[in-house]
Nucleic acid binder design. Structure first.
Lengths: 105, 105
DNA sequence: ATAATAGTTCGACATGTTTCGAATTATAGT
DNA sequence: ACTATAATTCGAAACATGTCGAACTATTAT
């Protein structure tokens, strides 16, 4: 029922994860699957593997891994091994939950 | 035009400000002026003075002052001296801007 | 089996953050 | 002028974070 981030601790953990410019860029890349200005209706989230997500960020693989782990621990990003790669995605309900913290539906 | 937080830097600064449990509590107190579950229509934001905002948080005045300053520097909270007190409030447009980062209107 | 590719874990170091108390400024009342 | 209340600034201590390279694990292909 989109009640993630219902405690203050869970919320501040989510914001902490987004407080780093590199992590925000990673999250943003996973989040923005639609054309700018349009409302995203995707029911299936876009997936990127770890390596592709870090493209252009100029950080070491170990640092990239660390950041994704933080986003995952904060409940913002899902991760799943797929062969040699690990795929990452954002559940649309999480976006809804965070959005409605600032403006209840 | 609700285009605050348009750069990644401004956004991550805002999230950093909300990443601390004490600051999130302060922001939340300023933010929630309406009954739970209802949509907030207030055109004039609620105001609290610094001291009242810190009530029940068990932090030193200097720490409280520091946190409010951070929220202000991140563009989340407005502050204005009013006699002996300093009043704090949240501009409703800021909430809208943050909300629409996660879910564009 | 060996090698190649994709990610993760670990330890270390530099940098930032949280917090406090003491000293300081701002304002209002006596 | 003096005092009381409200809030800020400063410096210091403890703790957390961001980053890297080296070593490691997982998976696939030869």
């Amino acid at each position: 029922m989109s009640n993630y981030y219902d405690t203050e601790q869970a919320l501040s953990d989510a914001f902490k994860a987004l407080s780093n410019p590199h992590r925000l860029a990673l999250f943003n890349r996973l989040m923005s699957c639609c054309m700018p200005g349009t409302k995203c209706d995707a029911t299936v989230a876009v997936r990127f593997c770890v390596g592709d997500l870090g493209e252009g960020l100029n950080i070491a693989p170990s640092t990239l891994s660390h950041h994704l782990k933080e986003l995952n621990r904060a409940g913002l990003v899902e991760m799943e091994r797929k062969g040699k790669n690990v795929e990452c995605w954002v559940e649309p309900e999480k976006l809804k939950a965070l959005s409605s913290f600032f403006q209840p539906d």
